[in-house]
């Protein structure tokens, strides 16, 4: 009973917040609704018994990706009148994307009605092995059968990350950075000198 209630709650919230994400005028509101959609999708994952994926969804998408979205969107200075001005010009492209999405949905529903995909087990259900928790099952698969693909994905991400850093990093010569280890290594006797000048005479530094 409570499963059904929870499912409809999460599903309705996911769809509704997804719709409001697109419809809301203010981009910051959009991002916040998107976060709610992620969160409810995580709830659906929990109901499906994939608690590990659910937690990862929250940690990665809500905890990191959406924060960065929000970080960028908050700093935009958006003129709403100007945003709506290009509506006619972008209409054809928008319609194209909509048609592609519609085709995908029709195909998806067709594939769903055609029957289960032959995945892990003969009857098509990707059941967790008995006696192993979700995490153990995923870990055992990732680090044995899919080890090469997993490592390759990691490598690609690493290359992408280094590429982004290389592209955006610029060396500036006009700023004086702080050399922390040099500062910490400084001792009083090399930083100060004790001088006793004669009366009436100055000090040369």
């Amino acid at each position: 009973m409570i499963h059904v209630l929870a499912f409809y709650l999460f599903a309705v919230m996911t769809i509704a917040s997804g719709a409001i994400t697109i419809l809301s005028r203010n981009p910051v509101h959009s991002v916040l609704w998107l976060i709610l959609a992620f969160f409810n999708a995580a709830g659906l994952m929990v109901l499906a018994g994939a608690e590990f994926i659910a937690m990862l969804l929250v940690i990665v998408y809500v905890g990191a990706v959406a924060v960065l979205f929000l970080f960028v969107v908050m700093m935009l200075d958006i003129d709403f009148a100007e945003l709506r001005a290009g509506f006619v010009r972008y209409m054809p492209f928008g319609a194209l994307v909509a048609v592609v999405l519609l085709c995908e949905m029709v195909l998806g529903i067709g594939a769903y009605r055609a029957g289960n995909l032959k995945l892990g087990t003969p009857d098509g259900t990707a059941a967790t092995p008995v006696g192993a928790s979700n995490i153990e099952a995923i870990g055992a698969l990732l680090y044995s059968r899919y080890l090469f693909l997993f490592e390759a994905a990691g490598l690609i991400l690493l290359v992408a990350m280094i590429g982004a850093i290389v592209l955006t990093h610029r060396q500036r010569s006009d700023t004086r950075g702080q050399n922390i280890s040099k500062q910490v290594a400084r001792r009083p006797d090399e930083a100060t000198v004790n001088v006793k000048p004669e009366v009436g005479q100055g000090v040369t530094l």
Partner: peptide, 16 residues
Amino acid sequence: NVGLLYILAISSLGVY
């Protein structure tokens, strides 16, 4: 089972 991940997920929500 995922107690520690849950804590990590919740603490990442705190910033909002």
